[in-house]
Write a protein that binds this DNA or RNA. Structure first.
Lengths: 212, 212
DNA sequence: ATTTTGTTTAGTATAAATTCTAAATATTGT
DNA sequence: ACAATATTTAGAATTTATACTAAACAAAAT
């Protein structure tokens, strides 16, 4: 089965790694690589691609907007998002935007080849976790994304907390009492089952600049 | 020139990627891979290796202590540290411990092959940045690594802070008074020119769990 | 319609963290 | 060797954050 695969990642180590893993498993495939968004658009306009393995943090990239743009060039293309962010907190928006699967960069060789195989055969690859997140989102049930459990106000305060604001700053910015901020904080920490801001930061898994 | 290379990384994508990049450039090399510390020790005991490309966050690993242990098995082995942490903040301790080079995982193909080539030919590979850090360290000039400015005790407290410990926990663990902890914290924050723990975390660029 | 549950708000009392000051000890400079 | 500087420690006073309680209101459930 001859397939055309495009790997989009700005880190050679990653694109080379995926390339060799797929090359070993799927002998007949043609594997191409691009390392930024413009190159990717150009390639898609000149060559029919079956599957694109897409890093979501490439130079020039626009997150979920990329999905629509890529599919408008080749409507039948399958898109497998390939990212270091954990799927619980980051997969859903891309799936909702039209991506056909989400795969973590830390996956094993078996998981990677399985994802590619599945997506080419069935048209999509969703782990049970992501599937559950999607169901949870649509049914408004308990979501795997911790932030979804919070109310608007609680999200607002969470945002300020991870920016490093103290209770006083938050109280001033939102024009509420200090104790009110503390109460919110308490509710947020209880919901997320955490004890302090350090845990909040690692839960939200904010990329600290220099990661994949 | 026939050389034996061992790539140590617990992520297939990374080890495969480095493997193919080196395989393309250096045709005659034998390239092996291991994915945890025990495997690595076993391999070194049974096979002569010229260069080990070492991820510092492998399962069972012990940071700088690994360097001594690996070199005690094969004293002539060259060790190239391969990490996602930026070299300014993380390279020096490994070089001081005896590693022969430090390479960022986000490097280009050219940088990777250059590092391997250089380390095999000259015995070490140090970027100008790392060299400067080492010089700064030895001359007690302003160091690029913020942690180097701190005393041992201050580093100890910093470590506990980014683990999420509060002042009381720290005071108990170190058997000092609460106010003493506060004083240390104040000194640390002043030295690092930061205002709170959120900034401390982003400064130290600690990986939030699921990163390479 | 009305109970139930969750959100947003705050006051009082308490706990935790910081500031300021300062002493003993270590380290470095000349 | 002695001065200058940095580290580690802590008490007293103060500031900041939390726990507990609770009211007003909104949304959801039965």
């Amino acid at each position: 089965m001859q397939k055309e695969i495009l790997i989009v990642d700005d880190h050679v180590v990653v694109s080379s790694g995926v390339s060799i893993i797929l090359g070993q498993k799927f002998k007949g495939f043609n594997i191409y690589t691009t390392e930024n968004y413009n190159q990717t658009l150009k390639t898609l306009k000149s060559k029919k691609i079956d599957l694109i393995i897409l890093d979501i943090n490439i130079p020039g990239g626009k997150n979920t907007d990329m999905i629509h743009e890529l599919k408008s060039i080749q409507p039948d293309i399958k898109i497998l998002i390939f990212s270091v962010y954990n799927e619980e907190t980051h997969a859903c928006p891309y799936i909702v935007a039209g991506a056909n699967g989400y795969l973590n960069k830390l996956s094993t060789k078996k998981e990677i080849t399985k994802a590619v195989d599945t997506i080419l055969k069935t048209g999509s690859y969703l782990t049970p976790t992501i599937l559950q997140s999607l169901i949870d989102n649509s049914t408004n049930k308990e979501s795997a994304n911790p932030l979804d459990k919070l109310s608007m106000r609680q999200k607002e305060i969470t945002e300020l907390l991870i920016q490093g604001d103290g209770n006083i700053e938050i109280a001033n910015k939102l024009s509420i009492q200090l104790t009110t901020v503390s109460t919110h904080k308490n509710k947020i920490f209880n919901k997320l089952k955490i004890k302090n801001i350090v845990e909040l930061i690692s839960l939200l898994n904010k990329p600290p600049g220099l990661n994949f």
